[in-house]
Design a protein around this nucleic acid. Structure first.
Lengths: 201, 201
DNA sequence: AAGCAACCATACGCTAGCGTACGGTGATGT
DNA sequence: ACATCACCGTACGCTAGCGTATGGTTGCTT
């Protein structure tokens, strides 16, 4: 009669809680006993659904990878053409100054990038994102090497922005400044080096 | 008779070891007993020089802040004009694919960005770097708002690159690709939006 | 209604790391 | 010579967290 809501916990409940913890405190926060307390349960429950803490961590990472990959890309795919998609994508991720859930996970993972469970996930996610960006730039007409460079700049700018917003939020742009910044980044990224200042479109 | 080299340890020895640990494993690796083992000593020594683990962590962070600030900027200041400085700076930090010492610290800190000892250091360092970049762009003739946007792009691109090189080194550019990438980033950053493709200079 | 299976709480042992108490040792001044 | 002080080792207690053992509920099934 301790837990108010539903009767019994599922493995998915634990994984979801672990993902939340991952976003807040990194892999170190994925700890069985604190999570149990937060769920109003005890380790007894946990070790029924999982065999070890590592298994929970793996489940949380798996969840993150799925959500991160599918959600964002699906949102962006709603746009009609490559240019609109790129715009939507950058506005979405650069606007995440107020810590989107996913960003925090990513940054929290940075500390244990070498962890055997973390590294492969991190690499798959990055690879997929870069590939998506490169495809976008290719469809915008840039040759392969150029598309790769631009996607790299776009991606690192995103990563850096996320890091800034997370670690030193006071220094990250907000409001109008952010808007102007995002616009300029987009303009820069799709610029073909020949145009003068008239808006791209 | 255990330690071979010098007789007694100093507080500075401990701080230096702590900084090394910080670079390798983040704040979590700044742990008294493991460090003691690595120095061939015991906690008895440590608690003579420091009053707590937090004091050691603070000392390590302080060291990092000083080195990080002075070393890099002094190197860059050797160049004659703003453009050369910007080039040197970007080539220096983007070339750090093979983890410069400082980068690792920075990334390792990312996990505990909220830590009361870490946060202020991180903010001071970022603020100083951004200010330096902005000054550079200003001296290149860009108006204030524009200089800020460009310095922000430069800085986030650097942060993102460092993150990529650290977390997923397989995806970071190397060799010729890196060279071409760095050149393009520099060209982009100093481009005034009017020129066609001839190399800036 | 009895019983089985899923689910969970409690209690336990174990490790890593922080911090403290205290005793020992080597150099140094007198 | 010996006292003193800086420096360090050892031994201890304490906490957080992992993992295990075991017994108790709850609810479905027959």
């Amino acid at each position: 009669m301790s837990r108010a809501g539903r009767r019994t916990l599922t493995a998915d409940d634990w994984a979801a809680a672990a993902l939340r913890a991952l976003a807040e405190g990194g892999t170190r926060a994925v700890a069985v006993e604190p999570l149990a307390a937060r769920l109003g349960a005890t380790k007894g429950s946990f070790y029924w659904h999982f065999r070890s803490r590592d298994e929970l961590l793996a489940a949380a990472l798996d969840r993150w990878e799925r959500v991160e990959t599918e959600e964002v890309i699906r949102t962006v795919e709603a746009e009609p053409d490559p240019l609109a998609r790129l715009r939507a994508l950058l506005l979405l991720v650069l606007g995440a100054t107020t810590e989107r859930a996913g960003n925090a996970v990513e940054l929290g993972l940075q500390g244990d990038a070498g962890h055997p469970l973390v590294a492969p996930v991190l690499e798959r996610v990055s690879r997929r994102r870069l590939a998506y960006l490169t495809a976008l730039f290719t469809r915008l007409g840039f040759p392969a090497a150029e598309a790769e460079r631009r996607s790299l700049l776009a991606y690192t700018a995103y990563l850096g922005h996320a890091q800034l917003a997370h670690a030193t939020p006071a220094l990250a742009p907000r409001g109008e400044v952010l808007q102007a910044y995002a616009d300029e980044v987009i303009r820069t990224l799709v610029d073909r080096g020949g145009g003068d200042d008239r808006p791209a479109e």
